[in-house]
């Protein structure tokens, strides 16, 4: 399980296409594959948003994400940071950021590798013995 993380329009998808050799893997935008399927999952925040708009609870959303994350198969998650803006007044907007943030935290804990992309420049945040943190990355 590998996470590619960063702000919007930072070149995350391009990085995955150019550097990860994924000729035969399904690419999903804003939807989840069936548990056990190999896939690149992009636009998870849009999927979460749609679930909330359809009145699914945080528990259901996190449940679906963890079931997928814990199933067999190779998956690359392209996660867009939406955490650094102003906290909005609208409850759905707030809930969206909350649930997205908690989902990302869960996935960061599970991932073997996390690569942050800053305007096309990769940085290993976790995994592969190249952690830039001096202390061990804890689960």
């Amino acid at each position: 399980m590998h996470i590619i993380f960063g702000g919007a329009f930072n070149g995350k998808r391009q990085y995955v296409k150019e550097h990860m050799g994924l000729e035969s893997i399904a690419w999903l935008e804003g939807e989840l594959p069936n548990p056990g399927d190999n896939a690149v999952i992009a636009g998870l925040e849009h999927w979460i948003r749609a679930q909330l708009e359809q009145d699914h609870s945080e528990q259901e959303i996190l449940g679906a994400i963890s079931t997928l994350a814990n199933s067999t198969g190779e998956r690359i998650w392209i996660l867009t940071d939406i955490s650094r803006g102003i906290v909005p007044i609208d409850p759905l907007e707030r809930e969206w950021r909350d649930v997205t943030g908690r989902s990302y935290q869960y996935l960061f804990g599970q991932a073997q590798r996390i690569t942050r992309i800053w305007y096309g420049i990769p940085q290993t945040l976790k995994g592969d013995g190249r952690d830039e943190h001096l202390h061990e990355n804890r689960r």
């Binding site: 702000g7 919007a8 329009f9 930072n10 070149g11 925040e45 940071d81 939406i82 955490s83 650094r84 803006g85 102003i86 907007e93 969206w96 950021r97 800053w118 305007y119 096309g120 420049i121």
Partner: peptide, 24 residues
């Protein structure tokens, strides 16, 4: 850095990302 939050002005933010990637 204006791209780590949900899109408020998508056209502006897309241009900004394009420019930043080119500069980097």
């Amino acid at each position: 850095e204006l791209l780590d939050e949900p899109l408020v002005a998508p056209a502006y933010q897309q241009w900004l990302g394009t420019i930043h990637q080119w500069l980097a």
